Simulated assay, not measured.
Amino acid sequence: MRLKPLMKVCQGIVGQSRSFGTSPAASQTFRKWYQQLWTTERTNLPPYNHFTQIGDPVLRQQAAVVPKEHLDSPELKAIVERMVKVLRKFDCVGIAAPQIGVSLRIIAMEFKGRIRKELPEAVYQTRQMSELPLTVFINPVLTVTNYTKLKHPEGCMSVRGYSAEVERFEGVKLTGLDQQGNQSELALSGWNARIAQHEMDHLEGKLYTDHMDRSTFACTCWEAVNTKSGRVEIPFYK
């Protein structure tokens, strides 16, 4: 089947669960019953409907190139659709396939115009933000076009609840394939260039914490922690 070779290159590390029984059945040997207590069960396989979190080995792997013969496969389309679904479900601006447990070179970005209304105008201008329609790249390649570096706060849905200042190049160009498998090219600057660099890092097994100014690393809800006497939860679902 076409599913097997594609999934072989994008297998993620899945969680383990233990099945604790009560006592061995009469027909079972104690040894077989004991082994069942520690059997690894594969549940909730990727592509996930949530973001993988720092510590998951899939975020530290170099993602595999999507084979040409699978570019028009229903399995690949399903992975891209799940990425877009999770991107919008968590209301973020970028996602890479490893963030849903799939180690393939795919990214998706979207910066909606309404975000401007949610931010102070000074922040929007200083960070050089601009609207970016939904953009998907398969097997993307990034080229720096402006080597000026800008330093701004950056967060990641795979490092939930924290942020830090990170230096990124001001301008980049992405080349690769779009959702239909056609060759595509896109020049980006400012904040959108930052999004592209952030997502490309994921494909190399890197996180923003590898580049951050460590002195600025902070919990995004530290004030709420103090106000609510520590009774604050960081959700990993939505």
Score class of each variant (00 low, 15 high):
1 M>R: 11
171 G>C: 02
28 Q>F: 05
238 K>R: 15
155 G>D: 06
44 N>R: 14
113 G>L: 07
100 I>W: 02
237 Y>G: 11
204 E>Q: 15
73 S>L: 03
1 M>L: 06
15 G>L: 09
44 N>Q: 15
105 R>A: 07
163 S>D: 07
32 K>G: 06
156 C>T: 03
92 C>N: 11
42 R>N: 14
189 S>W: 07
203 L>S: 06
122 A>F: 09
55 G>F: 08
179 Q>I: 10
85 K>R: 14
35 Q>V: 00
98 P>N: 01
222 W>C: 04
106 I>E: 01
233 E>Q: 14
41 E>K: 15
181 G>S: 00
67 P>F: 06
131 E>N: 12
190 G>D: 00
190 G>Y: 05
234 I>M: 12
134 L>A: 13
65 V>W: 02
30 F>A: 14
171 G>L: 00
40 T>D: 13
67 P>N: 00
55 G>T: 12
114 R>K: 14
220 T>N: 13
141 V>H: 09
51 F>W: 06
88 R>T: 08
90 F>N: 10
222 W>I: 09
180 Q>S: 14
202 H>R: 01
88 R>Q: 05
120 P>Y: 13
108 A>H: 06
167 E>F: 08
207 L>S: 04
91 D>W: 13
222 W>F: 11
39 T>Y: 08
155 G>Q: 00
129 M>Y: 00
31 R>K: 14
50 H>R: 15
202 H>C: 01
23 S>G: 10
229 S>K: 15
198 H>M: 07
230 G>C: 10
175 T>H: 03
220 T>I: 02
34 Y>I: 13
235 P>S: 13
170 E>T: 01
103 S>G: 02
37 L>C: 05
96 A>H: 11
98 P>H: 00
53 Q>Y: 08
165 E>T: 00
76 L>H: 03
92 C>A: 08
80 V>L: 04
58 V>Q: 12
143 T>W: 03
99 Q>G: 08
58 V>T: 01
107 I>E: 02
21 G>N: 05
95 I>F: 07
85 K>G: 13
151 K>C: 04
116 R>P: 02
175 T>P: 05
112 K>E: 06
38 W>K: 11
167 E>I: 03
160 R>A: 11
130 S>Y: 05
228 K>N: 13
163 S>L: 03
231 R>F: 09
206 K>E: 05
102 V>R: 02
106 I>C: 08
152 H>T: 02
8 K>Y: 13
97 A>C: 11
74 P>T: 08
199 E>P: 01
221 C>A: 14
180 Q>M: 07
200 M>E: 09
159 V>K: 07
113 G>N: 07
173 K>W: 02
49 N>F: 07
196 A>Y: 05
232 V>S: 00
9 V>E: 00
2 R>L: 11
179 Q>Y: 04
150 L>G: 00
194 R>S: 04
209 T>I: 14
